[in-house]
Design a binder for these strands. Sequence first.
DNA 1: CGTCGCGTTGAACGCTCTCAACGTTTGTGG
DNA 2: CCACAAACGTTGAGAGCGTTCAACGCGACG
Lengths: 257, 257
Amino acid sequence: MSPVIPITPASATNNCAPVAAKCSLCSFNRLCLPQGLAEDDVARLDQIISRRRRVSRDEALYQTGDSFHSLYAVRFGHFKTLQVNQRGEQTIGGFHMAGDLLGMEAIGAGQHSCNAVALEDSEVCEIPFSRLQELVMQIPGLLQQFHRTMSREIQREQSVMLFLSHMRAEQRLALFLLNLAGRYAQRGYSSTSFQLRMSREDIGGYLGLTVESVSRQLARLRQDGSIVLQNRDLRILDRSKLEALSSGGMAQELAVA
Amino acid sequence: MSPVIPITPASATNNCAPVAAKCSLCSFNRLCLPQGLAEDDVARLDQIISRRRRVSRDEALYQTGDSFHSLYAVRFGHFKTLQVNQRGEQTIGGFHMAGDLLGMEAIGAGQHSCNAVALEDSEVCEIPFSRLQELVMQIPGLLQQFHRTMSREIQREQSVMLFLSHMRAEQRLALFLLNLAGRYAQRGYSSTSFQLRMSREDIGGYLGLTVESVSRQLARLRQDGSIVLQNRDLRILDRSKLEALSSGGMAQELAVA
DNA sequence: CGTCGCGTTGAACGCTCTCAACGTTTGTGG
DNA sequence: CCACAAACGTTGAGAGCGTTCAACGCGACG
């Protein structure tokens, strides 16, 4: 299955151009803040979005220590969020795609506690937080949606903690691929065939593994016929096998028992 | 240093008694939702808190799958939040003490995605979420404080992901103890001498280690004179040594270089 | 053609887990 | 008050998994 709506080139917009993004026209609005809002409320949300901002590959949308003033909704493209420790190792907090909201971790401290870096040329909608906060006080549905979004981010991170704690490398990889597949499905893309936008090193940083381990585990998945993978082009051949692996083979054992 | 205010026995209140908790009288209000609010706004917050609720040791405040209707502010005592996987292993998402807010992970899905269990006899203030949502639309400071609280939870979980990804067992333990110490300091308790309210197994579940590893690492910290530990009574003897360990000994190496 | 970034593969090491035994503390019922 | 059991915590020995270190292949790019 191909994208429901082809991605607009937006070639006419400069970097950081003060062009208002139109939520109402955005194909991902049902995954984003406007979800469930009435038409005119969406229009009011449109108005506070100061601008779109282009972020080219490997460029940082924001960095640790930057003072916080805006949230960012991914319009197209992909991002990673990461923290760097003393040794220079990157812990990837997550990978983010169209409709995802970035920057929520910074509200509490008033400054960002991680870096958000584009994995490819991407574009975001900049949402000034002070204006958003005014608006949510006037639009109950928006308030609700914003809270749901933050809550889901908390839950997402909890699920990351889950595999970082107790899962084998093989499970982590299987779960990672299934997670990506599900998110592409939500967005109307193919859930069986897509490109990995991040490097093996990024995957390792996310899963708590080294590049070598990632590479080896992917090789195993390839060998047992679960996936086809050439460079970054992935095709999932046997979803159920991945699901079995992701639950640590317990599904099989339980089925036998 | 001892508690700023002795904990009230609350012996007159039954379990789940519909007694209004008074935020204005609570010694932890500056760590909780009322932070920064005007006096009369605190009073309005007081009014929506339907009741205090007693939770005895090992009892669940809520469980995975329970439908979401309230947040809970810890009044006194300690809680752990945990997820259980197929193998029955517990991944502890965090330990929570007075002033901490529980249940935020459930807003998005409308049902809880983890269990909250009391580590000792504890008490929480129940905050019906629908009423809170009404109130934050009337009190900007409360809205702001609520958002800060959710944001800090996101940030806290990111820092957990950090040590689950790349840290050695020794670093995790050191960081864990320092974190606890800091939180007790915030609450006016001693930061050098306190009780571990959770079992070694719980610590392991939080740090992504087995009980045996936790026990061994604690033994090492004892041997090198960083801490004194008898059963669950902890005394931190050498904070700077713990700090050096928590940064993976990099602090020393960098100092030498 | 040479370099650089990225990914893969191999071999050996080491940290943590697993399995097992034992000691200690706590709680319970006689 | 003691006996006993159960839960909790500690310690030891060995194995396994992922890491570390190293080499190599491949494609992009100048």
